[in-house]
Simulated assay, not measured.
Amino acid sequence: MALFRETADVSVRPAVPGDEAPMTRVQVTAWRDTHEVALGDGVIDALDTDAMQARWAQAITSPPGPGFAVLVALDGPDVVGFAAVAPGQLLALEVHPDHQRGGHGSRLLAAAVDRLRTDGAEQIVTWIMDDDTARERFFSSAGLGPDGTERVLATGVRDVVEHRWSAAV
């Protein structure tokens, strides 16, 4: 007999020590799924996941200042996504590919915007890599749009263009 939950056991909460390992797994898996071609051959494989995990641990336990926060999306007890904010900025928002289209990204974005508002932000800014149409659709549906600003990131294999998107909060 199948066991069904009447309501989904999903939530968003502030990240806590121990979340850095699943966050790093989510990030690497999501980047591999979405950005591997754009970043170039071998870039994802060359990531230092131990260093990434250490940086997330530091961001969780010792944010660099006021207005910085890390949030995680949970499906039951499992971390399936995360968002990181700085004053006025959404630095990162990733959901594991196996858990996308389940509302985790929307819950993370809503929680991130609430945090930014609480910290006095009047605008949200984030960056979207060239050709990431799924992310563009997601942020567009949430009311963000490109503001014409671009930046170029060097991956060691090729340069990657990112576009800044923003909206009033």
Rank of each mutant, 00 (worst) to 15 (best):
V85L: 09
A73P: 11
A154Q: 10
G81L: 05
L93P: 01
H104S: 14
G81E: 03
V70K: 11
A21N: 05
D130P: 06
A168Q: 02
A112Y: 00
E122K: 11
L74G: 10
D78N: 07
P63F: 07
V43K: 09
D119Y: 00
W127Q: 10
R115F: 12
R151H: 08
G156H: 04
M23V: 11
T7M: 05
G81W: 06
Q89A: 12
P146C: 12
V37I: 10
L47K: 15
T61C: 08
H104F: 13
R55S: 14
D147K: 14
A84C: 03
T133A: 14
A154K: 06
V160C: 07
A38H: 06
D132I: 00
L71K: 13
G76F: 07
G65F: 11
T34Q: 04
E150L: 07
G145N: 09
A51I: 02
D33G: 07
P97Y: 02
V161N: 00
A134S: 13
G76T: 02
P17Q: 03
D33E: 06
G103Y: 09
V43W: 08
V79N: 04
V161R: 15
G156F: 09
P97S: 04
V152C: 08
A92D: 06
D19F: 09
A111R: 12
R13W: 05
R151A: 10
R164Q: 12
I44Y: 13
G148K: 11
H96R: 10
L108Q: 05
L93K: 03
D119N: 11
E150C: 13
D48S: 09
S141F: 03
A84D: 01
T149C: 01
T49F: 09
R117G: 05
V26E: 01
G148Y: 09
G102Y: 01
A46M: 08
A111G: 06
V72E: 05
R151C: 03
T24C: 12
R55N: 12
P22T: 04
V28D: 08
D33M: 06
A86L: 07
A84R: 15
V157M: 07
S140C: 02
G42P: 09
P77E: 04
V152T: 15
P22S: 06
V85N: 12
R25I: 09
V43A: 11
E36C: 00
T29Q: 07
A51T: 10
G81T: 04
D119W: 02
V28G: 04
R32I: 05
P64M: 03
V37N: 04
L91Q: 15
V12G: 04
W127D: 07
L39R: 02
P146G: 10
D45S: 15
D78C: 00
A2H: 12
L116F: 08
T34N: 04
D114G: 10
A2V: 10
L3A: 13
E122P: 00
M129N: 03
D48A: 14
E36L: 09
T29Y: 04
P97D: 04
A167N: 01
R55P: 03
T49L: 08
R117A: 09
R115I: 02
R101Y: 06
V152L: 13
